[in-house]
Deep mutational scan, measured.
Amino acid sequence: PREAYIVTIEKGKPGQTVTWYQLRADHPKPDSLISEHPTAQEAMDAKKRYED
């Protein structure tokens, strides 16, 4: 089974940042970016789909 994890990042100019959620996995390479999402819920949904 595949495993993934969610990383929170800040995008934008200082003082005007927006939080994004990255879905990452250690396949095919360590810390590979799988997808980016504007909400934590979307990231969790993507994580479930990826791991299923």
Rank of each mutant, 00 (worst) to 15 (best):
P1D: 11
P1E: 11
P1C: 08
P1N: 15
P1G: 14
P1I: 15
P1R: 14
P1A: 14
P1L: 14
P1K: 15
R2Q: 09
R2V: 12
R2I: 14
R2G: 12
R2N: 10
R2H: 14
R2C: 07
R2P: 11
R2S: 09
R2F: 11
R2A: 10
R2W: 14
E3Q: 14
E3N: 14
E3T: 15
E3A: 15
E3C: 07
E3G: 15
E3W: 14
A4W: 10
A4V: 12
A4I: 11
A4P: 09
A4E: 01
A4F: 13
A4S: 09
A4N: 02
A4D: 00
A4R: 02
A4Q: 02
Y5D: 01
Y5M: 04
Y5H: 06
Y5A: 02
Y5L: 03
Y5R: 12
Y5S: 04
Y5F: 10
Y5W: 15
I6W: 02
I6Q: 00
I6L: 05
I6D: 00
I6S: 00
I6H: 00
I6R: 00
I6F: 02
I6P: 00
V7C: 05
V7G: 03
V7P: 00
V7S: 06
V7F: 05
V7E: 04
V7T: 12
V7M: 07
V7I: 12
V7R: 09
V7Y: 06
T8Q: 11
T8P: 14
T8S: 12
T8E: 13
T8C: 08
T8M: 14
T8Y: 07
T8I: 13
T8N: 06
T8R: 13
T8K: 15
I9G: 02
I9Y: 08
I9W: 04
I9S: 05
I9L: 07
I9F: 07
I9C: 06
E10N: 10
E10A: 08
E10C: 06
E10Q: 13
E10R: 08
E10V: 13
E10K: 11
E10I: 13
E10T: 14
E10F: 10
E10M: 09
E10Y: 11
K11Q: 06
K11M: 08
K11V: 11
K11N: 03
K11F: 07
K11W: 06
G12W: 05
G12C: 03
G12M: 05
G12L: 04
G12Q: 06
G12V: 06
G12P: 03
G12E: 04
G12K: 06
G12T: 07
G12I: 05
G12N: 05
K13P: 13
K13R: 11
K13M: 14
K13E: 15
K13W: 14
K13Y: 13
K13V: 14
K13Q: 13
K13I: 14
K13S: 15
P14N: 10
P14D: 13
P14R: 09
P14E: 13
P14A: 10
P14V: 10
P14Y: 12
P14Q: 10
P14H: 09
G15V: 03
G15R: 03
G15T: 06
G15K: 06
G15E: 06
G15D: 08
G15L: 07
G15P: 15
G15C: 05
G15I: 03
G15H: 07
G15F: 07
G15W: 06
Q16P: 09
Q16T: 11
Q16K: 10
Q16L: 10
Q16C: 09
Q16G: 10
Q16F: 15
Q16A: 10
Q16W: 09
Q16N: 13
Q16H: 14
Q16D: 13
Q16R: 09
T17V: 10
T17C: 06
T17W: 11
T17E: 09
T17G: 11
T17K: 12
T17P: 07
T17M: 14
T17R: 11
T17F: 10
T17D: 04
V18Y: 09
V18M: 11
V18F: 06
V18C: 04
V18T: 14
V18R: 13
T19A: 06
T19D: 04
T19M: 10
T19N: 06
T19H: 05
T19K: 10
T19S: 06
T19V: 12
T19C: 04
T19Y: 08
W20A: 05
W20V: 10
W20H: 06
W20M: 08
W20E: 03
W20N: 03
W20C: 04
W20S: 06
W20I: 11
W20K: 05
W20T: 06
Y21D: 01
Y21P: 01
Y21V: 01
Y21M: 01
Y21H: 04
Y21W: 13
Y21A: 00
Y21L: 01
Q22E: 11
Q22H: 04
Q22W: 02
Q22P: 01
Q22C: 03
Q22D: 01
L23C: 02
L23V: 14
L23K: 01
L23E: 00
L23P: 00
L23A: 01
L23S: 00
R24D: 01
R24Y: 15
R24V: 08
R24K: 15
R24A: 02
R24G: 01
R24N: 02
R24W: 14
R24L: 08
A25M: 06
A25L: 06
A25E: 04
A25C: 08
A25Q: 05
A25I: 14
A25K: 08
A25S: 15
A25H: 05
A25G: 07
A25F: 04
D26R: 12
D26V: 09
D26F: 07
D26N: 15
D26P: 11
D26H: 13
D26A: 09
H27K: 10
H27W: 15
H27D: 11
H27C: 07
H27V: 14
H27R: 09
H27I: 13
H27Q: 14
H27A: 07
H27E: 12
H27L: 11
H27T: 10
H27F: 15
H27M: 10
P28W: 06
P28V: 08
P28E: 08
P28G: 08
P28C: 05
P28H: 10
P28L: 13
P28S: 07
P28M: 08
P28R: 07
P28Q: 09
K29R: 12
K29S: 13
K29Y: 14
K29T: 13
K29D: 10
K29A: 11
K29I: 13
K29C: 09
K29E: 14
P30H: 10
P30W: 08
P30G: 10
P30C: 06
P30F: 11
P30T: 09
P30V: 10
P30N: 09
D31P: 10
D31T: 05
D31G: 15
D31A: 12
D31K: 09
D31I: 03
D31Q: 11
D31V: 05
D31W: 13
D31N: 15
D31F: 15
S32V: 10
S32C: 05
S32N: 08
S32P: 02
S32G: 06
S32L: 08
S32D: 04
S32Y: 14
S32I: 09
S32F: 14
L33R: 03
L33A: 03
L33D: 01
L33M: 07
L33V: 13
L33G: 01
L33K: 03
L33Q: 03
L33C: 05
I34C: 03
I34M: 04
I34N: 01
I34R: 01
I34D: 00
I34A: 01
I34T: 01
I34K: 04
I34E: 01
S35D: 02
S35G: 03
S35V: 01
S35I: 01
S35C: 01
S35T: 03
S35Q: 01
S35E: 02
S35H: 01
S35F: 01
S35K: 01
S35P: 00
E36F: 02
E36S: 05
E36L: 04
E36V: 07
E36T: 07
E36D: 04
E36H: 02
E36C: 05
E36I: 07
H37T: 01
H37R: 00
H37V: 02
H37Q: 01
H37Y: 08
H37W: 15
H37F: 08
H37E: 01
H37K: 01
H37A: 01
H37P: 00
H37N: 00
H37G: 00
P38Q: 13
P38S: 12
P38M: 13
P38C: 06
P38F: 07
P38L: 13
T39G: 03
T39P: 00
T39R: 04
T39M: 03
T39Q: 03
T39S: 11
T39H: 04
T39K: 03
A40S: 08
A40T: 07
A40N: 10
A40C: 10
A40G: 06
A40R: 15
A40P: 12
A40L: 15
A40H: 15
A40Y: 15
A40F: 15
A40W: 15
Q41G: 09
Q41W: 12
Q41N: 09
Q41F: 08
Q41I: 12
Q41E: 14
Q41L: 10
E42G: 08
E42A: 09
E42P: 01
E42N: 05
E42M: 07
E42L: 09
E42V: 03
E42Y: 03
A43F: 00
A43C: 04
A43P: 00
A43H: 00
A43G: 02
A43Q: 00
A43R: 00
A43M: 01
M44S: 08
M44A: 13
M44Q: 12
M44I: 14
M44Y: 14
M44P: 00
M44D: 09
M44K: 10
M44T: 09
M44E: 14
D45T: 08
D45R: 10
D45H: 09
D45N: 11
D45Q: 13
D45P: 00
A46Y: 04
A46W: 04
A46E: 05
A46H: 05
A46C: 03
A46N: 03
A46P: 00
A46D: 02
K47S: 02
K47P: 00
K47I: 04
K47E: 02
K47Q: 07
K47F: 05
K48W: 09
K48D: 08
K48C: 05
K48G: 08
K48E: 10
K48F: 09
K48N: 09
K48M: 12
K48H: 11
R49T: 09
R49D: 08
R49F: 10
R49N: 11
R49Q: 12
R49W: 12
R49V: 12
R49K: 15
R49S: 10
Y50N: 02
Y50Q: 02
Y50R: 03
Y50E: 03
Y50C: 02
Y50I: 04
Y50S: 02
Y50T: 03
Y50H: 06
Y50W: 15
Y50G: 02
Y50D: 02
E51H: 07
E51C: 03
E51V: 08
E51K: 07
E51F: 06
E51A: 05
E51N: 12
E51Y: 08
E51L: 08
D52L: 15
D52F: 12
D52C: 08
D52M: 15
D52Y: 13
D52I: 12
D52P: 05
D52N: 14
D52V: 12
D52Q: 15
D52T: 15
D52A: 14
